[in-house]
């Protein structure tokens, strides 16, 4: 299928892109095009004008930011997947990358594009909420830094204002004595996950839970922080029964999952229960390993 006609611009500088976006409110930024272009080809989306960001080298690339890491918005998923620094500094993200769609899509799709698109079934929004990343935004009016948990505001909705672009994401360093795990379930690998969960667990000096972060995907309008499940773990000894209780709490009280032909609400709750338990079990084992 072919998209309806549109104007096409391919600026060579970020300033040029931001000026176009500020001047023309109908302009839509084009990153990797792995969601927008299919929607246009099916004629579900019909932006009058595209601003192609693919010549903006300044937006691509991975750099150290203190002990953490900064990923430019136009960095391809496959570049993140293959970067050793990601494995060392952001292991939860590293573990998640192979779950995102298919290799062909990861070769083209971008980190910033996935975040700005804010699909409720996408992996990266949940991971960024779990690791408490900061989303960097730019417009002709200036730069803003928004915590990931505040960036995602609803179904395909974000804190992005008209004329604003995601320029980068900053992931803070992994605290000491911290374990991580990502789990998701899809009927076929690469399909939208029916449920996914990203987990970070930090132990205190005595081996109890100092802090836990559990972010779920595909169970709401966007990434869902499972605050009640996290509360269950807080200060506990993280044994199997506490993990089971937290997973139960998350599946019961933290989510209102949708029902569709792929999975009923009840099945999504069951998947949440099982995947959260598995992810927590692995994350706690890693945290204990890191505490030795």
């Amino acid at each position: 299928m072919k998209p309806p006609p549109f104007e096409y611009y391919r600026p060579s500088s970020l300033e040029g892109a931001l000026t176009l976006l500020a001047e023309r409110e109908e302009a839509k930024p084009l990153a990797g095009g792995q969601s927008l272009i299919p929607a246009m080809n099916f004629r579900l989306a019909a932006p009058a004008m595209l601003v192609d960001l693919n010549d903006l080298g300044e937006l691509a690339g991975i750099t150290a930011a203190g002990a953490g890491i900064r990923i430019g918005a136009m960095t391809r998923h496959s570049a993140v997947e293959r970067d050793r620094r990601i494995a060392e500094r952001a292991p939860l993200l590293w573990e998640t990358m192979p779950h995102i769609a298919h290799p062909q899509i990861r070769n083209r799709g971008t980190v910033g594009g996935s975040l700005a698109h804010a699909d409720p079934a996408a992996e990266l929004p949940a991971v960024m909420v779990a690791v408490e990343a900061t989303v960097l935004l730019r417009s002709t009016r200036g730069e803003r830094r928004v915590p990931a948990a505040e960036f995602f505001t609803g179904l395909f909705r974000t804190a992005l204002l008209p004329g604003e672009l995601v320029t980068a994401i900053e992931i803070p360093p992994l605290p000491p004595r911290t374990g991580w795990a990502f789990e998701e379930f899809a009927r076929r690998h690469g399909d939208y996950a029916l449920v996914g969960v990203a987990v970070l667990v930090t132990l205190d000096g005595g081996g109890r839970c100092e802090r836990a972060r559990i972010a779920l995907l595909s169970v709401g309008d966007g990434p869902v922080l499972a605050t009640r499940a996290m509360g269950t773990l807080q200060d506990s000894d993280l044994d199997a029964s506490v993990i089971r209780e937290a997973a139960e709490r998350g599946a019961r009280d933290d989510i209102e999952p949708p029902s569709d032909i792929h999975a009923s609400e009840a099945y999504r709750r069951q998947l949440t229960r099982v995947l959260t338990r598995r992810a927590l079990t692995r994350a706690v084992a890693r945290a204990r390993e890191a505490s030795r």
């Binding site: 099916f42 579900l44 409720p120 079934a121 609803g154 179904l155 939208y192 709401g220 309008d221 949708p258 029902s259 569709d260 032909i261 792929h262």
Partner: peptide, 17 residues
């Protein structure tokens, strides 16, 4: 129609919203 074929996984969330 098209919206059901392509947007099936989102219909429930959208109608709730």
């Amino acid at each position: 129609g098209k919206i059901a074929g392509l947007g099936q996984r989102l219909l429930d969330s959208v109608s709730r919203m």
